[in-house]
């Protein structure tokens, strides 16, 4: 995340990831401020799971997140465009073949 003007007294910012039900990935839910990890976890519970939105929480201090640069998006993601052989539909199989 971009280095923000840090107010020395402000509690650090945390990113919250919530697993909405067993078996699913944790998904970014939002952010919040907390003095420490324990409090961040509890604040996440109080702020982001009031309506039974979650069964598991991850919190990470925002400053530890490294994000890709959108200016490099073309070089990062476009090369995947022509690799259609990575997708199962690329392969033609006779209809008789089942369960594949």
């Amino acid at each position: 995340m971009e280095e923000q003007k840090i107010n020395k007294n402000e509690w650090p910012l945390w990113e919250v990831f919530i697993r909405s039900k067993a078996g699913l990935d944790h998904k970014h839910a939002g952010s919040l401020h907390a003095a420490d990890a324990q409090m961040a976890m509890e604040n996440a519970r109080d702020v982001y799971t009031r309506r039974m939105e979650g069964v598991s929480i991850w919190v990470v201090e925002s400053k530890y997140i490294h994000a890709s640069d959108p200016a490099e998006a073309e070089s990062l993601y476009d090369p995947a465009n022509d690799k259609i052989y990575r997708h199962p539909t690329f392969y033609n199989l006779p209809d008789e073949v089942k369960y594949m």
Partner: peptide, 11 residues
């Protein structure tokens, strides 16, 4: 004293 704790206390 802070928004997050306001919410916590109300819970």
């Amino acid at each position: 004293p802070v928004l997050e704790q306001d919410i916590a206390l109300t819970n």
